[in-house]
Simulated scan of single mutants.
Amino acid sequence: MIKAILFDMDGVLIDARDWHYDALNRILALFGMPIDRDAHLATFDGLPTRRKLEILTASRALPSTLHNFFNEMKQVYTGEL
C-alpha cells in the first residue's frame, strides 16, 4: 500500500538548474547556438524550455520547426545527467 508520494517541484529538494542548462546547451551546441552561463542566468534561467526556444527563435533565428525536436532532446539529455 502506498502511504506517501514525494515529488520535487524543480529546485525545492534538488537544485537541477545546472542540469537544465547543460542539457539545453548540449543540443544548442549541435546547431552552433550555445548560450553562455551569464546570458542563461540573465535571460533564460527558470523559464520553461518551450519559452527559451521561443526567445531563441526571436533573437537568434532558431527555426520554430525544430522546437519539438529540441524540447524532446533536452528532456533526454536532462535524464542522462
Rank of each mutant, 00 (worst) to 15 (best):
L28W: 01
H20Q: 06
I5S: 13
G79C: 05
G32H: 07
E54D: 06
A4Q: 14
S59K: 15
A61R: 14
G46W: 11
Q75P: 00
L66F: 13
L30I: 04
L53F: 02
F31C: 01
T43Y: 05
M73H: 07
N25H: 10
P63L: 15
M1D: 08
N25L: 09
L13H: 07
A23C: 04
K74S: 15
I14V: 15
F31R: 02
L28K: 02
I55W: 10
A61W: 04
Y21R: 02
S64L: 11
I2V: 06
G46R: 07
G79L: 11
R60E: 10
S64P: 08
L13K: 06
N25P: 11
I14S: 15
G79Y: 10
T78P: 01
F70N: 02
Y21D: 04
R37Q: 11
P48S: 08
I35S: 00
F70C: 13
R60W: 06
F7D: 10
L47I: 08
D15L: 01
N68G: 12
L81Q: 07
G32F: 01
L28F: 03
R26Q: 13
G79V: 05
N68D: 15
F44D: 01
D36Y: 03
A42I: 02
R60L: 09
F7V: 09
D45E: 15
L81C: 08
N71V: 01
H40R: 08
